[in-house]
Design a protein around this nucleic acid. Structure first.
Lengths: 351, 351
DNA sequence: TCGAAAACCTGTAACGTTTCAGTTATTTAT
DNA sequence: ATAAATAACTGAAACGTTACAGGTTTTCGA
């Protein structure tokens, strides 16, 4: 039933000890004629075990395909070998979740860690999954997104000295591991590329609203860009937060009909860009001629939608990798300040 | 440090037993003046425990916020309370992965189960993660996608009598739990809606290629539709498998320049539709006038892209829910034949 | 040659849970 | 009144691992 390779020299003893069962330390101990303790220590290269013994034990372990029992380790040591990804199940920016998951998995695949995904519905308290993980000790580290300027989760986890990394920054004066896309640089670059195309009246549709930290980074970059380029910012209010795409289209349409409409718009997600374009075209304006649009995307599709859009890419898979590395290193005890990284907007290359 | 509610009547004893520590069966046993065994059995409503005792034990458990230690249960019983979602990290149809995850989580949230996501890179053996899970016993059930007509994973898991559910069907004569979108019905409906618009020469761009089961369902529905409607099928060969979107656009363009091009095209993913439209328009044809396009999507975006596209929706979150329910019931021992479901194409309502 | 240190190995206990095989007290049947 | 049956509970053992506190040898310095 169990198709393990059959080493003639030790096959018999394995069969006696564990027929069709998973090998344990006991199995190896018996095969090597050693105590279970010795085997355990030998496998983790403890200094008090002889070199010869270590090699012998490791050889046997590899031969019979030994894998430590996670439940045993976890019960004894409290170490779960689990990273928990906590996310808001609602706000799905195209491909964000999946790429984050894939990026994280890429890193964790090389380690004993497993990835548990814990989405919470937006009507629930974002603190709930966090508390659950701490109280039940069901992970060694947490990765979370939707970071807010003053984030209660960050405070809670820091107070409990629990390893975590956030996708996005906070503004609480707490040093913690994070990875963030440099939205300030993006908004700045966006303004610049619009101005380069001769646009002077620029609006920004930021999306998430002031609850999320990156709204402010966008705002900073936008203002810096305007100032340096001497362009005019056109205020777009009450567009942010949970507004449906249809709403965004309608508001864009109304907005473009007002006197002195913008000739350049910056969007911060591909979804928004699509809706904004619909609004622009409803008024009869043509993209690239009457108005220019800049957007970033997390998945290639905007240049298919309207090739005139100026597109910047945000590599979320890379963010996943960075976040995974950050939590792992934090678990190892590294200082949070060494575990903070940004990634920068890349102008999409049209081929 | 631990902010549990402080019940004056038993607070002292808790403090003595476990100050700031998680309560265990031992804690409850001490507080109730009972043996650990009794508490364990009381909590799971065993018949040999008195009704009064049960209520008392449960009350205490709830009061002190007892949660069974997963490692303890797992070590003793082998039950992991984990469902593993195994997916191909490459082929990301927009929003498929995330919606699947969210759907599954929705169901698991009501249960003690956690969701572990195990992507494998396409250059690796799809059997690898499956074998790993079985050999290390790291989950109680598996959900997997990218199902093939003759799928070695299905065979392996069935042989090992391990609970699983597939997103997609097989053609191996093995009865196993699955959920599938009815692609036959979709292709059929797609042909019909094209014919209703007066289209007679119809092509289908199926996408994944004959390796995946649903290619054949699409093909069946396509042929049935053609026959019933008396339309002509235009063969599109060598388009399937891992072809980039740019390739699809270029091939569409070449294809549309040939004599007797189709006047109706069926796509099976939104991504393909986008590329095909680009090819169509490159030839100067206009969607809705010269040619019609039907596509399904897993995320709302096609009607933003080109409102002329006839869009069907595939609700992947629903698929996730169905798959989760199927594995859970399979774990409970339900017959696989009761755990097979289809969902049907819904014409997208334009508002 | 002796004592001490170093090198290497080991058994026991514990983590929290459930299962097994009881034990005790109470009820029922005769 | 007594045996048998039932109800209600219990301690010990086990799952696989690691930490602790030893235990033997062997080696080495004086």
């Amino acid at each position: 039933m169990n198709d393990k390779r059959h080493n003639p020299s030790d096959g018999e003893r394995v069969a006696v000890l564990a027929d069709g069962e998973r090998p344990t330390l006991k199995t190896i101990a018996f095969m090597a004629g050693l105590g279970v303790t010795t085997v355990s220590r030998a496998l983790k290269d403890a200094p008090e075990i002889g070199q010869a013994t270590k090699t012998r034990v490791k050889l046997i372990a590899k031969q019979i395909g030994y894998r430590p029992n996670r439940a045993g380790v976890r019960l004894r040591t409290g170490k779960t070998n689990v990273i928990s990804l906590v996310l808001n199940a609602q706000s799905e920016i195209m491909g964000l979740t999946s790429n984050l998951v894939y990026g994280i998995s890429e890193i964790l695949a090389e380690t004993p860690y497993h990835l548990i995904v814990t989405p919470y519905s937006p009507e629930h308290d974002p603190m709930h999954p966090i508390r659950y993980i701490i109280e039940t000790g069901s992970a060694d580290g947490i990765i979370m997104s939707q970071t807010e300027p003053s984030d209660p989760r960050v405070r809670y986890l820091t107070e409990h000295d629990f390893p975590f990394a956030t996708h996005g920054r906070t503004k609480m004066g707490i040093e913690h591991p994070f990875h963030d896309f440099d939205n300030e640089a993006y908004a700045y670059a966006a303004v610049k590329s619009l101005v380069e195309r001769g646009r002077r009246r620029i609006a920004m549709v930021a999306g998430p609203g002031p609850a999320h930290t990156y709204y402010w980074h966008l705002d900073d970059g936008f203002k810096r860009g305007l100032q340096e380029c001497g362009a005019t910012g056109v205020t777009v209010d009450h567009w942010n937060g949970s507004v449906s795409l249809s709403d965004v289209r309608n508001r864009t349409e109304m907005f473009m009909r007002e006197p002195n409409p913008p000739d350049g718009i910056i969007c911060c997600t591909g979804g928004l860009a699509v809706a904004v374009v619909a609004g622009i075209e409803a008024v009869g304006l043509k993209l690239g001629r009457d108005i220019d649009l800049v957007s970033k995307q997390t998945t290639d599709f905007l240049q298919w939608f309207r090739p005139e859009i100026i597109v910047f890419n945000e590599d979320v898979r890379h963010a996943g990798r960075e976040l995974a590395l950050a939590v792992l290193r934090r678990i190892e005890g590294r200082d949070p300040t060494e575990l903070q990284s940004l990634s920068y907007p890349e102008l999409h290359e049209t081929d």
